[in-house]
Design a binder for these strands. Structure first.
Lengths: 223, 223
DNA sequence: TGTACATCAGTGAACGCGCGTTCACTGATGTAC
DNA sequence: TGTACATCAGTGAACGCGCGTTCACTGATGTAC
């Protein structure tokens, strides 16, 4: 049996000195691509990643200690994206409540645009990120801190009555997270409206519940 | 090597005629026990279940077509429990808003008492229950219908303004589901309060956002 | 410009593992006589 | 009450599979002379 020397069988050109980082990057991208395609962490095997890149499995270990640290890095990268989206959204509004709402919308959009990343980041007890939240500087902590700050701004402006901003932030986070994670988990559920409309409806009623004077709210039809 | 004939090595007494159902039940219980202990569907292998029961793996196939239908049955059983808890909670209150609140509380309690079942039921895209919600008579559908009915009662009583009860039910479901699923997924997150307090706080602000006249609400301290 | 050589990115083969499932079988239970 | 026999619940061994990881190696790249 003679191996054909086409693209499939071709041996990878060895990376020149100092360009090993390139392959490392390629591996991360491939892992991410597979995660999106299969939608399950379990299907992303070291072998599959190597195949996707066009290298052999052992090569992975030149660039990563083990599978866990590889996936860990993929996740941190995506969390950084979420933070970027948060900053864009928050910067786009000046009124504190509107800015808070923009955060909620951005969060939901992020989740529904990257459902597979979202599932891995937020819907699994990731063994490979044991101290995700313990590390003050982690991307996850940064995102939550920004949400708390946004709630505090609403309290400071007098739009919300005084209360623990962290507790309120948790309620808001819970609402949007709950909705998007249900949408991701159960797409075949008979949802009463589009994802977008349900997110807006949820933010409506959540923010109304938080306002000091609900009559102040920017009016939106409900019925 | 002589096998000791103690409890370990003892061959199982063959079930007498008509009592095959007993072993079937034992298998389901063992699968459930393992699910709770390991907290992961992946660790519940056919071999582990057989071991837990004290039989050999092939015996499983006398009672179930395959692993999938076994796990499917375990899940439906737990959903039935949720429905029972719903009925108890709803029956315990006569005022519609209080009854709705009782449902929310019961849901959260169910999730936090059986976190591993909850994860499997509500936090994974269960390949083994593809038509969970399409089947009108499924336990999952029953639970959601009860929630919608409770919301409708609030609207009918005049406590909530007229709106689509299903859409409002989704918002409430999202909130409590979001909170408990975050608690389950990220126990090491620096939560600002106890699970119980956060659920109450969430229900407070959610219900306040839904009431026609928020001043009517049963007063609870917030600060 | 030409040659010998060190480096080290990537390879090929293999390891031990646990998985779901199958198959021909064993042997206690219950029945027919 | 005693014996021959059919049933069928549960067994033991094996199947093929994909997994993460290891190891000694190969051979193109880049360098020293």
């Amino acid at each position: 049996v003679i191996k054909d020397s086409g693209a499939r069988g071709a041996r990878r050109r060895r990376a020149p000195k100092g360009e090993g980082v390139k392959l490392r990057e390629e591996i991360l991208n491939a892992a991410e691509r597979l995660l999106v395609q299969t939608g399950s962490e379990d299907s992303v095997s070291v072998r599959a990643i190597a195949d996707e890149v066009g290298i052999t499995p052992p090569s992975i270990y030149m660039h990563f200690d083990d599978k866990e640290s590889l996936l860990n890095e993929v996740c941190e990268r995506r969390f950084a994206d979420l933070n970027a989206a948060f900053e864009r959204a928050y910067g786009s509004e000046h009124e504190p409540v509107a800015a808070l709402r923009a955060l909620g919308r951005a969060y939901g959009e992020f989740a529904l645009t990257h459902p597979d990343h979202y599932r891995i980041l937020m819907m699994t007890t990731s063994s490979h990120a044991p101290s995700e939240y313990e590390d003050e500087s982690s991307q996850g902590r940064r995102a939550f801190t920004q949400l708390v700050d946004a709630v505090r701004a609403c309290i400071d402006s007098g739009a919300f009555p005084p209360s623990d901003p962290a507790a309120t932030a948790v309620s808001l986070w819970a609402g949007v997270h709950g909705l998007v994670s249900l949408l991701i988990t159960s797409p075949s559920f008979p949802w009463p409206a589009s994802a977008h409309d349900m997110i807006e409806n949820l933010l409506d009623s959540q923010l109304r519940g938080l306002l000091k004077n609900p009559a102040d709210r920017p009016s939106r039809p409900l019925g």
